[in-house]
Design a protein around this nucleic acid. Structure first.
Lengths: 238, 238
DNA sequence: TGTACATCAGTGAACGCGCGTTCACTGATGTAC
DNA sequence: TGTACATCAGTGAACGCGCGTTCACTGATGTAC
């Protein structure tokens, strides 16, 4: 008698599901997510195309699984990098480590990156299952910023516009940041503004690099990214 | 006798070429560039698919024409917005106007924006004809920054790393900026660094908005973009 | 001005292709007694 | 432990579809004399 979770069938299922996902991700390197072909993936794995339907109910389901897997990998990379900084109060070091981990993963997985941060697939709406995975990498960055500012004497001064305007405009972000901060603390709207702008700048920089817009302008992408990240750290007063 | 440039044929050719391009751009709103179908475009225009080949030698040629047209429109929008600021020494106003023009055009033409700044079409390499169009919007921003700093007493101080490192890393950008500056002036590497970072942040912000990454965080995209742009203006010391 | 020829836009059929998905099947694996 | 039945992974054929591109054609427009 075999326990339900370790029969040959169950193990094979897990393994082959992984093989299909891996093959699909390789395909994504050479074709956009919209052109991802289930039949091509099946061929790569060595099955007949209809067999894939034993594992994924449709092409969209495959895309969803890919999205979740990729988001989780990116999130895990950021988390690991942050955790590897021994001096937990060195927020600049943690920020730099996490940002570079995000870029390193992106450079190593261009197809996956395009899936996550490139043009959305037309006609495909990511289901809610993807949200918790999608938020992981971002949460690492947010936590570093919030923790750095937690319990400081002075709140950041609003640079442009009024605090009230910022609060209204960033209501959603403030709620998200508030959930990740200590229960009693309220998050400063100016800090939220700078955090979102920094987060956007990081992925904007990676996208520009990956999609070829920095060709001819920047020679050393890693060094350039490092510059951007350290400037953002200063901006965020980490 | 009719002059070569205004025969009925020539006029029809120009008109229909425009109709094909327009139909293709509508299609791009609902399908990524990789999935753009020549047959579908032909159908929309009311021709048989093979007739399109009288106007474009291949699907890739159509894509190239779309790229050039869209880049030129975006560039023209930025140029017009900049030119409409009467007080030419009010560089902040010019910067804000140009940036908003870029965002407004992008929001109004999401399909075209994705073509220009989204995931590149796999297997398609934009030919060199596109470069001069591609550079127009960017040039507007660069010119504002350079002109603002032209002939100032103090050069910007390098914030992170050494000026030498920046110069090496940004050789390509420095050459580009140098071409647009007054002949005798040399462009400060720190200024180049901040300019590229600002340029990247602008398109990063627009991409995040357009591709859905700000949903739930930011409520008023236009106000948020305005914040970003004004902060960048300060950063650039316009 | 009128005619003969050349150019060219648009047609419609055809090519070979790959796609997502369904379905009846077979044989191996798992389960209950 | 052994047998009977149920589950399920994988097969292979088939469906209807849309795609990019080629080609011989027709009829209208343009050009040269």
């Amino acid at each position: 008698m075999t326990s339900a979770s370790s029969t040959a069938r169950t193990r094979a299922r897990i393994e082959i599901t992984g093989e299909i996902l891996a093959a699909a991700r390789v395909r994504l390197t050479h074709a956009g997510p919209g052109e991802l072909s289930l039949r091509a993936v099946a061929r790569d794995v060595g099955m007949v195309s209809s067999a894939v339907y034993r594992y994924f109910a449709s092409r969209d389901d495959l895309l969803t699984a890919l999205l979740i897997e990729a988001y989780n990998e990116l999130g895990a990379a950021a988390e690991t990098a942050d955790a590897s900084v021994a001096e937990r109060t060195d927020f600049v070091a943690r920020w730099v480590a996490a940002c570079h981990a995000i870029r390193d993963w992106s450079v190593a997985h261009p197809g996956d990156y395009a899936l996550l941060y490139g043009t959305p697939v037309p006609g495909y709406a990511a289901p809610k299952d993807t949200i918790s995975a999608a938020v992981r990498a971002t949460s690492v960055l947010v936590d570093i910023v919030i923790t750095a500012h937690q319990g400081r004497d002075a709140e950041l001064e609003t640079r442009v516009g009024s605090p009230q305007d910022l609060e209204k405009m960033l209501a959603g972000a403030l709620e998200f940041l508030g959930q990740r901060a200590e229960p009693t603390t309220s998050v400063n709207a100016e800090l939220a503004m700078r955090t979102i702008a920094a987060w956007t700048a990081i992925f904007g920089t990676i996208s520009f690099e990956m999609f070829g817009h920095l060709v001819g302008s920047v020679d050393d992408y890693n060094a350039y990214f490092d510059q951007v990240v350290r400037r953002l750290a200063a901006e965020l007063e980490l």
